[in-house]
Nucleic acid binder design. Structure first.
Length: 363
DNA sequence: CACACGTGGAG
DNA sequence: TCTCCAAGTGT
């Protein structure tokens, strides 16, 4: 195969392989094997359902965290029709622990659109994909390139970092995103755009890392402006992050004498919407946790130690009050008694799982 | 554009 | 222990 020659940077500079060719050559030798990925060079075609599902799960989530969830979902719901017709609460419970639960709500909505309105086939264009719930600019481009072989400009946080370094783009994010996107467009090949995107992401994940990038192992080192400057790690320049406020809330741990706990389904608009949860007050700034009526009256015993959990944009301090009731008790509101012996199957988000752990640990 | 939205692993 | 932040989207 013929390597493209990039224009010489400086007079007399040695001609070099294009970024795409160097990267794809590296990818052909070092691509990670992942459950949703077809190895480079295989004749098989990637299944759009699996590509879509993996891309949704991978949004802001590490590969290691996604793999077991991906296996669970594809085993239980092998195609988009199966997922579209699945019980909604079952899907939400299967997502529990992965975070960003709006993804799960949109996942179900998207599967239903594809199955019921699009004849079970995903759109094969970026524009069509972009119209689906939960599919934004990145995901539309990624699916178009990876599943349908389209030339699409795929920009995620990895690509952003690699490209900002390659071209030493010093404009801080998010302002610098325009220049990064243009530069990515320039180096994206017409052929193998899907492999190129995945190769960029592999590179960003394993070599061109946020901290202490492994420039000595990088196939793009000869063409990297940031490496030439000797300071790859300063790119991309990011704005200072904001401080996390603390919020407080109260949990009503209502336990039945036969070892069942009262669990509710959270409204779609709330945080952790659509997920199972323990009853409690709203979470707000110190002292403000009002409006929380307990599910039943009676003597609630406050626990000494609370539970702390850190979300993306705030830290939560949860206090717990406990009451044990008889088998005939039927609390107000929607909810159900769940056996503590099988609490792991209730589909509780991690913050509530922490409370369960606290309430069931020995001592 | 800025902010809300989860979690767990790495350094 | 603590800080950073990952294959982003919706509003």
């Amino acid at each position: 195969m013929l390597a493209k020659r990039s224009p010489a940077g400086a007079p007399g500079a040695a001609p070099s392989e294009s970024v795409a060719d160097a990267l794809l050559r590296h990818y052909d030798a070092h691509a990670r094997r992942l459950p949703w990925r077809i190895p480079p060079g295989a004749s098989e075609r990637a299944d759009p359902y699996r590509v879509w599902l993996s891309e949704i799960m991978l949004q802001q989530t590490t590969v290691a965290a996604v793999i077991p969830y991906f296996e669970k979902f594809t085993t239980r719901w092998p195609d988009v029709a199966a997922l579209a017709h699945a019980d909604e609460a079952e899907v939400m419970a299967a997502w529990a622990g992965l975070g960003y639960y709006a993804r799960a709500r949109n996942l179900i909505a998207c599967a239903r659109v594809v199955a019921d309105e699009l004849g079970g086939r995903f759109p094969d264009s970026e524009e069509g994909l972009l119209a689906l719930p939960g599919v934004g600019a990145y995901t539309a481009a990624a699916i178009a390139a990876i599943a349908f072989g389209r030339r699409a400009v795929v920009v995620d946080a990895n690509v952003e970092r690699v490209v900002a370094r390659l071209f030493a783009i010093a404009t801080p994010l998010p302002q610098g995103r325009g220049a990064i996107r243009e530069a990515t467009d320039r180096i994206t090949p017409d052929a193998r755009a899907g492999d190129f995107a995945q190769a960029m992401m592999d590179l960003g994940s394993a070599v061109c890392t946020v901290k202490t990038p492994q420039c000595l192992l990088c196939p793009l080192r000869p063409q990297c402006a940031a490496h030439a400057e000797g300071r790859a790690e300063v790119y991309p320049v990011k704005p200072p992050k904001k401080e996390k406020p603390t919020r407080e809330g109260l949990i009503w741990w209502l336990e039945r004498e036969d070892s069942h706990v009262w669990i509710e389904r959270r409204g779609d608009k709330r945080m952790l919407g659509g997920m199972a949860g323990l009853p409690g007050t709203a979470w707000d700034a110190r002292g403000g946790a009002q409006g929380g009526e307990p599910p039943v009256p009676g003597d609630w015993i406050a626990l000494n130690a609370g539970v702390e959990h850190v979300f993306t944009h705030f830290r939560l301090l949860l206090s717990v009050r406990r009451q044990v009731v008889g088998a005939a008790c039927l609390p107000d509101g929607e909810g159900q008694w769940w056996p503590l012996a099988r609490i792991g199957e209730a589909g509780l988000p991690t913050v509530f799982a922490k409370v369960v752990h606290r309430m069931t640990e020995k001592g």
